[in-house]
Design a protein around this nucleic acid. Structure first.
Length: 882
DNA sequence: ATACTCACG
DNA sequence: ACGTACGTGAGTATC
């Protein structure tokens, strides 16, 4: 059998694992007080790689100690590094224990680093005809890449890797694997603390290597180079470069005492591994072991509910767990598969949802005094509503609470969510029902009923613990006063739905159809051939190969044909403008005409979206089936789609109110910046005010539309967590100019600058950022070594409190609004939310009332240090509410 | 299933 | 020197 060798750079991967889970350091502590995050991450990586590679042979190499032949050569090698945290060091012996339980060999060698062991073994393996995979967090090891050896470098967390083959190295770096050491020789390595040639960075080194092949090649030709600073540096730093190359070169002949022939991997010792997991408190790995070894979940007691034993439900006087099973995601249309109700181990199950209509059940659900504990209350409310039932007094919603504790816990599966919280006695729906086309509710009563009973048991088991965590995070008010009432309001909006006039849409559709085929013919004519305009691949070939237009941007797989690219190409050939036109119309046609028509319920001519309340990382809602938060508005062509959104009664109108500049107002509030606040208090045009400040203008007359546009982009950039590059791309200026704009902005708004610094620091220290309502977002990548990942996390740290607080505010407004509509006895109905905008339908005569009431409620949702501003519109269709 | 493109705030 | 703006969902092509 073909030999497959898996070599792991132990220290490097352990270190990556440690930092990948650094923000959860406190959560990864076992009963003995030992930190376990690195062990856990290491295990995750092992499982992942063993599954991906299916190795026949395996070894994990470790560094032997601080001193090596490299430190002997250069005593400052790896000097100046921050001290290894003790929380990390204490875990290393346990990683070795983990490997022993897995039956994986590990090895270290005095005076050598793990790299050298790996390099030597990989060389032996190549010679012996093995296929080898090396796993590491250190990009330098890519120098070991050959036709038989792939280097997998961890990119995000520990289980996602980038696989380097010689081709990939060439593609990514533009050099061969063996040239990597020449590159390091020229540039040096700051993290290992050795210098190369002064002022030579990656770009310069690449150029030199392209021309001369290697360091040796460079120096053979250095005399012939034309006079330059670089030439001087090269000559001056010759010795440094030579030494750097040696330091960077991984040994292929380290005096190791293991041989590639004795690394056979036979698989783990299950008992030993289970014992280890127990000691580490790794519940999820324990469960995986059990599942892999086919240990069935513990049996659970339940009672089949029938008309005959309904009376037994009177025992539930204070609280019940309740679950309504609907097999498909869209609960507006899903079938009902059954339900479960009970408390404290007394679980009652039935497939017959008609039983819910019996007073014995219906009264419990509607009771204001019996607390209900559920998973996904909004889904439950809408489902029950279809049966004519009401759900009141929800106490605990496992889905909502999990999401508030950690926005990443947004799985819609109770079993996987429970597992995340350490509850292991509930399989996932996928495990019980299957997936894809095979997914089905089991015919086997025992199987299905046990699953439902286990769902209730899971909700009950996690209730107290998660509520306590919520309280520790100071998130109880966020849950009680915002998310729970929000779920009820959203359920009402979804149930209400919005009427869509299908005739209007169909008329638009046939017009678009005609125009599309006209443009299509023109494009074929201009291209000189027929092709699929909707295929970026075929289009790319036509534009950039056949018509030889200049390539402006590439995607991973080919030429980019995105709007910004095509706009640049438009002057080159008339076909480009036609393609843009075709794209625009075909988008409207497929997504908004056809897509929306498909979503109309034939029973009431309405669309009933579902708002996902536990999905976004910032606290915003999202909308699906159909998405009503991205109906066209910017371009007139598309905006006409809104003419199809009409009131559900004769004599009614559509009314909408939106917050003006809510994110910038939130920014002014949380940064306490006096200048920004002053602009809002004065009621200034905020973009013009920013323009005057950053361009140092004396009077408002000097603010031309173009200057205002640039200032507006700067304001947006600030909200997004600004970077000079991003801003320069957005408004088509140089990076240097963009940087000058940003500097000027921070000069004028020092409070904003201070905030940006503080919030990033806070993310570093606490591992998360918060909104004004204590909504929390964890940012593990804030500690990432990769510039890219870390920068992304930093921008997110700046943006999330702003975007998230704005989301909090409109949620509060919606809850207050719904209450107000009821108390005022209005017929007006809240239908939609589009992030900073609320849309209603109402009898014409109520419009003047709404015009006062809605802005009043929205303004006063929270008290900020700056006023909120609301603008309202109304008309016969959504289009006309402008 | 994934990549690309494009609609919204 | 690095290489991106923040947050979403859906349709289509292509594997």
């Amino acid at each position: 059998m073909a030999k497959k060798l898996l070599l792991i750079d132990g220290n490097s991967v352990a270190f990556r694992a440690f930092f990948a889970l650094h923000n959860q350091l406190d959560r990864f502590v076992n009963a003995d007080g030992l930190h376990t995050n690195a062990v856990y991450g290491f295990n995750t990586m092992l499982d992942h790689m063993i599954k991906a590679v299916e190795p026949t042979d395996m070894l994990v190499a470790f560094d032997a100690g601080k001193t090596t032949f490299r430190t002997a050569m250069f005593d400052n090698y790896k000097g100046g590094r921050a001290k290894t945290p003790s929380e990390f060091s204490e875990q290393m012996p346990y990683i070795e224990q983990l490997l022993d339980a897995y039956g994986i060999q590990h090895y270290k060698l005095k005076d050598y680093e793990a790299d050298d062991i790996i390099g030597t073994l990989a060389g032996q393996a190549d010679a012996a005809g093995y296929t080898t995979t090396i796993v590491t967090g250190d990009r330098d090891l890519t120098q070991l890449t050959t036709d038989q050896t792939t280097v997998a470098v961890t990119v995000k967390g520990v289980s996602e890797v980038e696989r380097y083959t010689p081709e990939h190295v060439q593609e990514k770096l533009g050099i061969t694997p063996t040239q990597i050491i020449d590159m390091k020789g020229l540039t040096g390595d700051t993290s290992d603390n050795y210098p190369g040639v002064t002022k030579v960075g990656e770009k310069t080194a690449l150029k030199l290597l392209k021309e001369y092949g290697s360091i040796e090649g460079v120096y053979e030709n250095v005399d012939a180079m034309k006079q330059s600073k670089m030439k001087e540096h090269l000559i001056e730093d010759h010795e440094l470069a030579t030494r750097a190359k040696v330091l960077a070169t991984i040994k292929r002949d380290a005096p190791i005492t293991v041989s590639v022939t004795d690394l056979e991997y036979k698989g783990p010792n299950i008992d030993q591994l289970a014992e280890f997991y127990q000691a580490m408190d790794f519940q999820s790995f324990l469960k995986k072991l059990k599942v892999a070894n086919d240990e069935p979940a513990a049996p659970i007691d339940y009672t089949v509910l029938t008309k005959a034993n309904l009376a037994e439900l009177v025992q539930f006087k204070t609280a019940v767990e309740f679950y309504l099973e609907m097999p498909t995601a869209n609960y507006h249309t899903s079938a009902f598969a059954g339900f479960a109700i009970g408390h404290e181990g007394h679980w009652f199950i039935s497939r017959d949802v008609e039983l819910l209509l019996q007073p014995a059940v219906a009264e419990i659900l509607a009771s204001e005094t019996i607390q209900k504990n559920v998973f996904d209350m909004k889904r439950t409310i809408v489902g029950l509503n279809r049966l004519g039932l009401t759900l009141n007094a929800v106490d605990f919603d496992l889905l909502l609470v999990s999401y508030l504790l950690d926005t990443n816990d947004n799985s819609n599966d109770l079993g996987s969510l429970a597992e995340q919280h350490g509850y292991l006695d509930l399989p996932t729906d996928e495990e019980v029902y299957g997936k894809g086309v095979k997914r089905a509710i089991p015919d086997d009563d025992q199987l299905f009923f046990s699953h439902l009973a286990r769902k209730l048991a899971a909700i009950a088991a996690l209730h107290a613990d998660l509520m306590k965590k919520l309280d520790e995070n100071e998130q109880t008010p966020l849950y009680d006063d915002i998310e729970k009432p929000m779920a009820i309001v959203l359920a009402q909006m979804e149930i209400a739905g919005i009427t869509v006039d299908s005739q209007t849409l169909q008329a638009m559709g046939s017009q678009f159809k005609e125009r599309l085929s006209e443009i299509e013919q023109t494009i074929y004519h201009e291209a000189g051939q027929e092709f699929n305009i909707n295929s970026p691949k075929q289009l790319g070939k036509i534009l950039f190969e056949d018509m030889k237009l200049p390539v402006i941007k590439k995607t991973k797989t080919g030429y980019s044909t995105a709007v910004d690219v095509l706009e640049k190409l438009a002057p080159e050939a008339p076909i480009v403008a036609n393609i843009l036109q075709y794209r625009q119309i075909s988008k409207i046609q497929s997504t908004y005409v056809v897509g929306l028509l498909d979503a109309i319920h034939s029973s009431d001519q309405k669309v009933h979206t579902r708002y996902l309340q536990t999905l976004t990382q910032t606290g915003r809602l999202s909308s699906v089936d159909p998405n009503l938060q991205n109906i066209p508005v910017r371009l007139e062509e598309g905006r006409k789609i809104r003419q199809a959104f009409v009131p559900s009664h004769e004599g009614w109108q559509i009314f909408s109110s939106d917050y003006s500049q809510i994110e910038l107002r939130v920014l002014a509030h949380i940064t306490h910046d006096k200048n920004l606040q002053a602009a809002f208090k004065e009621g200034d045009d905020i973009h013009a005010a920013t323009a005057m400040r950053i361009f140092n203008l004396k009077s408002p007359e000097e603010v031309t539309p173009n200057i205002r546009r640039q200032a507006k982009a700067v304001n947006f950039g600030i909200v997004y967590g600004i970077s000079d590059y991003g801003l320069s791309q957005n408004i088509g200026i140089t990076r240097k100019q963009a940087k000058a704009f940003i500097d000027a902005y921070f000069q004028e708004y020092p409070g904003v600058k201070q905030y940006m610094t503080d919030v990033v620091a806070q993310a570093h220290e606490q591992g998360y950022v918060e909104t004004i309502s204590h909504r929390r977002r964890y940012l593990p990548d804030i500690h990432a070594k990769s510039f890219n990942q870390r920068s992304f996390a930093e921008r997110t740290a700046m943006n999330t409190p702003i975007q998230g607080s704005a989301a909090d505010i409109i949620k509060i407004a919606m809850i207050n609004m719904q209450a107000k509509l009821k108390s005022a006895g209005l017929k007006a109905t809240m239908l939609l939310q589009v992030h900073d905008e609320l849309i209603f339908e109402a009898p014409k005569e109520e419009i003047p009332t709404l015009a006062k009431l809605v802005p009043a409620v929205m303004d006063s949702a929270v008290k900020l240090e700056v006023p909120l501003k609301v603008e309202s519109h109304f008309g016969d269709t959504w289009y006309d509410a402008k």
